[in-house]
Amino acid sequence: MSAAAPTSAPTSAARLPLARRLARRAPWWGVVLLLAALAVVWVYPFVWMVSASLKSSLEVFTAGLGIVPEEFAWENYSRAWTDANFGRYMVNTVLLTVSTVVIVVVRCALAGYVLGRFRFRGQRVVVGVLVATLFVPTGYTIIPIVKLSMELGLLNSLTGMVLALSGAANVSAILIYAGYFRQLPKELEEAATVDGAGFLRVFSQIMLPLSMPVTATVALLTFLATWNAFFLPLVFSFSDPDLRTLSVGMQAFVGENATDWSGMAAAGVISILPIVALFLFLQRYFVEGIAGAVKS
């Protein structure tokens, strides 16, 4: 390729003739084309869902691959929101998710702080138990959780769901916090202690604000897991449809109205839109949080 180039080599690439520059980049554009085709396939189910949610009930069946609806049928959304009760499910999901995130962040930060920064009797036992249960699958403990919640009178309540979801697993969050707090310099709390700050003040005013990057990651991943949770909310809302979350409501909706495709699609868009929007805004933290599993 560079046989004729000895004289032009010292000059910058920008001086190369346009045709040659394009030719050099051609393989990359081939790759891009391939990746773009794959990307279209990748997002197609979501595009189809959005498109179906705006079509009339009849058009969904006949349109085939057509994406743009003939007439925008916004009433699908009001049907899903009001008649199919997705407004209610949205409130439940938001309440469940926000409460769980707050509890998980607080309890994991507290535990990670003392485990990472102090030596005390019983510490090895606590760490040992946590690490041993790191691999315990959460789904298989559902029967005792239901029985326990029933005895505590929490089975048919959002509170019960919040407690069960925030009590499950999250060992890795504690370990991330512990690792982060451990590597902070000792002088930080020494200076504060000299100034007369107590245990609680050192934690809440110095350590916790410093751990913002970890908190962001833990909060986001917990948010994702809780928003998308299905098994536990399903079991907890068996006898009270008013407690359904979006994920549970979707299945129930299709079970009752198998032919209402556009209503189903509208309900799906309502359920997925918030988490997708959050992802698009905070993508970096999502990706870093997930990549952390490999890096550590």
Binding site: M49, F230, L246, Q251, A265, V276
Partner: peptide, 23 residues
């Protein structure tokens, strides 16, 4: 491309499952 290929991960699995019945 990274964003697009990662997108399905964040969506609610139970919702996707229902939608796939129709797809």
């Amino acid at each position: 491309f990274r964003t697009v290929y990662f997108l399905p991960v964040v969506t609610t699995t139970a919702i996707v499952g229902v939608v796939m019945q129709f797809v």
